[in-house]
Design a protein around this nucleic acid. Structure first.
Lengths: 133, 133
DNA sequence: TGTAGTGTATTAGTTAGATATAACACTACA
DNA sequence: TGTAGTGTTATATCTAACTAATACACTACA
């Protein structure tokens, strides 16, 4: 049961997406992907706030939402942990694909407005995917 | 020189992205893609506001930004028109690809967090692109 | 027992985005 | 000359998101 540092997060202050929402969706994806496994200790609110230069309450807001979702578990006086309900390790491939969908749908709309044909859009995406690993 | 109706816009109120920014980027893409050609008349502020149930000020804010960017031109008492600086018809393929990049880069990051391999991510995107036309 | 580390509550203030209402200067056209 | 339609300005109000400082109850551990 490893314990994670604040480096599992990376927020962009320039984005219009609220910070607490960025934190929430990052945890959702990393739990679904398995990087955050049941029983793992989450970085403390103060740790994340210090590292990312945020207000502790902003981080706490994200953690609270994740707790009410059932993804995290709170242990009084100790901190937050990845919940092990069902002892699942990550989510099914179809569920994870479903989580990726919205962003790709948005990309498809943008490609259409830009008059970029599907073949070209795919090759751009392929290059990006290649570079990211 | 066609004149466009408010139907060139489609905003999502649920998104965290400000409405006026949604309008701005949609015009940017449609000008780059060529759907909005130099000399075309834009729908009036009041028309867009009425159709999309927005405040005219929100639309005006988007138009003002686009004017300061040089994409639109204002004719006093008449309305806004797609600027014909350089008489460009759309942008080059590389420029349009560049505009699509940010969203696809975000998708790549999400795919990595979801542990979705590049091949699978590409096939999901391909299916979406196929369905969108 | 004391100390440091958990998440959280409280209260207050700031900022950006969006709305509402009214008014202004301008233009085309019957 | 009216009338209706342009974008814009001004003032005020509202909400969500974020920050700031302080304090609380709880836990592990030297």
């Amino acid at each position: 049961m490893p314990s994670h540092s604040a480096s599992i997060f990376s927020i962009s202050t320039g984005s219009t997406e609220p910070i607490y929402r960025q934190l929430v969706s990052q945890v959702q994806r990393q739990v679904a992907g398995g990087q955050l496994a049941p029983g793992d200790a989450m970085p403390s609110v103060r740790d994340v706030a210090r590292t990312l230069a945020l207000n502790p309450l902003t981080v706490s807001k994200a953690y609270s939402l994740l707790e009410s979702e059932g993804l995290l578990q709170r242990r009084r006086g100790l901190g937050m942990w990845v919940a092990d309900i069902g002892a699942r390790k990550g989510s099914s491939a179809t569920m994870r694909a479903e989580m990726l969908r919205p962003t790709l749908e948005r990309a498809a709309v943008e490609a259409a407005q830009l008059e970029i044909d599907p073949k070209t859009a795919l090759s751009i995406f392929a290059k990006i995917l290649k570079g990211k690993r």
